[in-house]
């Protein structure tokens, strides 16, 4: 998902406090920034919300890539609005993380020097316009799967950020589906491009949910803390079940010859992605890892004079006002 493979931090707190904390969570209460919380809860959440925020920001790059080359002015305005939303989503989440005692600069620097990750999906390129449609449809579709249950997460600021994000996210998926539908219903060449985009993005989208439950070792504590609401496989299955009819409507074929409806399970059977590719991408060896981090580092470095300048200006103004009083 936007946060993948978040390791739950060990907690060494007073067992009585821990029990009381768990009881609050079990009762459905929200934990707020100034409440007592286990160190492990705090650290795990900083990592998870931070990774989620980084994903929103890095996620602007593959789509921003096509703003200037959108096929019509309308599509350009829509894509611009969507990418703008992602910046906002990153901001909501960074602010939620900051309530846990980490500063914006600290968390940004951890992304820039590779100590923190972002979702594996954004290490894949957007080669043509069909990919932009497919990203909205599949990548935002997968993100929604995870973000909807996270609206009920135990940490108040995270929950409220997710509620706001989910409200805006529906636009993202629908504009993507609308864009790819136009191609799928277009000329044979356009339909071929739509199919090609689905072929390339299907398995990377399935990878967004993280490793299979049997290899996902960090879930139990996070689920008890209600900072992870469903297992990776549960969400992946839900995504497949939702997406197959959408692809069928477009007349596109999911690139999985073994995909079929299983009457007994009431779900589609599907082929897992190649997990060695996933781990390789996470390690930094995906097609765009180097580009993405370089772009973020460049933006940070190029923006330094603006940040410094505005702060110096604000300080000067405050000093003047102080002197005038």
């Amino acid at each position: 998902m936007y946060a993948q493979m978040i390791k739950s931090e060990a907690t060494q707190d007073d067992p009585e406090k821990l029990a009381a904390f768990q009881a609050r969570i079990d009762a459905g209460e929200k934990i707020e920034p100034k409440d007592w919380m286990p160190e492990g809860y705090r650290k795990t959440l900083i990592r998870q919300i931070g990774q989620h925020a980084h994903s929103e920001i890095v996620g602007q790059l593959p789509e921003g890539n096509w703003i200037t080359r959108a096929p019509t002015l309308e599509r350009k305005a829509i894509l611009l609005a969507k990418v703008q939303d992602e910046a906002g989503h990153g901001l909501y989440l960074y602010c939620a993380a900051e309530t846990l005692g980490v500063s914006r600069d600290e968390i940004t620097e951890m992304l820039l020097d590779g100590r923190m990750k972002y979702s594996s999906i954004f290490n894949y390129p957007t080669l043509n316009w069909a990919d932009i449609g497919a990203v909205g449809w599949l990548v935002d579709g997968a993100a929604i799967m995870n973000q909807v249950p996270l609206q009920r997460t135990s940490f108040g600021p995270y929950s409220r950020a997710m509620i706001r994000i989910c409200k805006e996210e529906s636009f993202h998926q629908r504009q993507g589906y609308d864009a790819i539908r136009q191609m799928a219903e277009g000329t044979p060449e356009q339909k071929k491009m739509a199919q090609d985009a689905l072929n390339r993005l299907w398995y990377p989208s399935l990878m967004m949910f993280g490793p299979s439950d049997k290899d996902s070792v960090h879930s139990a504590q996070s689920m008890a803390w209600k900072i992870k609401m469903n297992t990776n496989d549960e969400l992946r299955q839900k995504f497949v079940d939702q997406t197959v009819p959408q692809a069928e409507y477009l007349g596109l074929t999911i690139p999985d010859p073994d995909l079929k409806w299983n009457d007994e399970r009431g779900h589609y059977d599907y082929t897992d992605p190649d997990w060695s590719e996933f781990f390789d991408v996470i390690k930094g060896n995906g097609p765009c890892n180097v580009d993405r981090l370089a772009a973020r580092n460049k933006a940070w470095d190029d923006g330094a004079w603006v940040r410094d300048g505005l702060l110096a200006h604000a300080k000067k103004k405050a000093a003047r006002q102080h002197a005038a009083e």
């Binding site: 305005a77 609005a81 529906s170 629908r174 504009q175 609308d178 009819p245």
Partner: peptide
Amino acid sequence: SKVYRHPTFFDIPEEVGAM
């Protein structure tokens, strides 16, 4: 004027389910 920011701007066929 940025009506496309609202999800209802896009017609999604009923057959494909909620989006």
